[in-house]
């Protein structure tokens, strides 16, 4: 499948081949280590009073934003390959798992440092739509994270691909969570939502051809 926006094949080859050649030599595993650094730094900075006046909010916000960036990166892989021929496919699992990791940290900081009591955490999840939506997004990521391994891909076959389309719903829920939590009319969360919707639209039948 390729995109209606796809560059002509010769252009793709001239652009993508050298990049892909380099990428072939760059393994995916360092991403897991690099990806673990920002949350670790955030936590260290919070404990050492280096996150400004409201460290809890800063941790929450940063982890949430990183989660959105990572899921956007995950969604970029396919259209990027279809349009330019550059393939980041082998990094996609790491990007997806890191998204899950960041959002899990985001939840943990919110529950343990912000809300603090389990009864209130539960009450918020049930009663506050933006939290319900965020939580739903995280729960939908759970089966994806659990099956992000080669054994599951083999075992599940075609249904693995179907299952992993859940990431589209996760991305929309994540952006929606941000859109409805801000006060007043703010642009930033709408930009994240727009980016995600565009990346999903590129996957619709009208945008792709076989």
């Amino acid at each position: 499948m390729s995109s209606v926006l796809a560059l002509p094949k010769p252009v793709q080859r001239r652009l993508a081949d050298p990049v892909n050649r380099v990428l072939r030599r760059v393994p995916a595993w360092p991403l897991y280590i690099l990806g673990a650094l920002p949350p670790a730094w955030l936590y260290w900075a919070a404990l050492n009073d280096r996150l400004g006046v409201d460290p809890v909010r800063e941790m929450e916000h940063q982890l949430g934003l990183w989660g959105l960036w990572l899921i956007i990166a995950t969604l970029v892989v396919t259209p990027l390959r279809q349009i330019t021929g550059i393939s980041l496919l082998k990094y996609r699992r790491a990007l997806g798992l890191l998204t899950f990791f960041y959002i899990l940290c985001h939840l943990a900081v919110w529950a343990y440092y912000d809300v603090q009591t389990w009864s209130r955490v539960w009450a918020d999840i049930v009663k506050r739509p933006y939290i319900t939506i965020g939580m739903a997004g995280l729960l939908l990521m759970l089966p994806l994270a659990l099956t992000s391994n080669t054994a599951s891909i083999r075992k599940l076959g075609k249904s693995w691909r179907k299952l992993h389309k859940l990431v589209y719903a996760v991305a929309i829920l994540g952006a929606l969570h941000f859109v409805i939590l801000v006060k007043g009319f703010q642009i930033e969360p709408l930009l994240y939502m727009a980016a995600i919707l565009i990346l999903l639209a590129l996957r619709l039948p009208w945008a792709t051809r076989r």
């Binding site: 404990l47 409201d54 809890v56 603090q116 209130r120 918020d124 009663k127 933006y130």
Partner: peptide, 21 residues
């Protein structure tokens, strides 16, 4: 009386360190 999007029952205390509420 909650704000429709969040509870007003408690508050984070700015400058009180982590877990101050």
């Amino acid at each position: 009386v909650s704000h429709p999007r969040w509870s007003q029952a408690s508050e984070r205390v700015i400058g009180g360190g982590l877990r101050s509420r």
